[in-house]
Amino acid sequence: MSSAVAEPELAAQFDATVRRKDRIEPRDWMPDAYRKTVVRQVAQHAHSEIIGMQPEGQWIGRAPSLRRKAILLAKVQDEAGHGLYLYSATETLGVSRDELTEMLISGRQKYSSIFNYPALSYADVGTIGWLVDGAAICNQVPLCRTSFGPYGRAMIRICKEESFHQRQGFELLMTMMRGTDEQRAMVQESVNRFWWPALMMFGPPDDASPNTEQSMAWGIKTHTNDELRQRFVDMSVPQAKALGVTFPDPDLKWNEERQAHDFGQPDWDEFWDVVKGNGPCNAQRIAHRKQACDDGAWVREAAMAFAEKQKVATA
């Protein structure tokens, strides 16, 4: 932004910083495309945390015990917090909170497709914690070292909190697996529904992900979608075994040579269809967020008016 230094020199400084794996801070000079990419990715991430409260949030009032209710409440509250950390990270680049909310509600910015699937039973609360938060952790741990400073710092905070999310989900499912046949069937049915959407959380295959290469060159992303998906599958298989459930993939098997699991591909047509807005819950998720925003407007205004009045009174 300083006009005294020529742009090529600033660009060279930026490149050198990224190459050193040093962090870019909000007031540093950065290429416009870098700024846009960071805003898009961090905002999308923030929106995912905020929309992500909905599928599970619906179950808070119907939790099977006080213990489960307290846990779920704390988990959903954490997701709100994650959204707030990430919104503030985005705002350091000069986008306002109101603009971000508007872009979410108008559909100009996306959120993770996984949250367009419904949570149909309490077993889903467990499966979401285990697989959805599990996949999110896989994605997020490398992002702690992303090149944009505020994003990386938000991710460190978030990752510390996510491990409770995954563990409470797994423990919930373990408890159900020790229950009746009907409860075990509920768990398996839930896992069958969430497995493929969880794999989609890593994004399209590398050859269909045109932005990955540039994002990696800038140090925003540090691993490709397929690398992270593989890591997630390899982590999840032994967990499923311990739990006593299977994944609905006939091609899933250990490959001795690769020292990794082979697995089938999610239905990418379904993925793109959900991204385009045609998932089971897209309209409902946005409508709910819009209503919460509209319903809260008078509270935000009243709080501002009260603050103004106090200022006048003490002046």
Binding site: R97, R153, A154, R300, A307
Partner: peptide, 12 residues
């Protein structure tokens, strides 16, 4: 420093 947030006034 841990981050930022929006609030109507100092107490909030």
């Amino acid at each position: 420093h841990v981050g930022s947030l929006h609030a109507p006034d100092d107490a909030m």
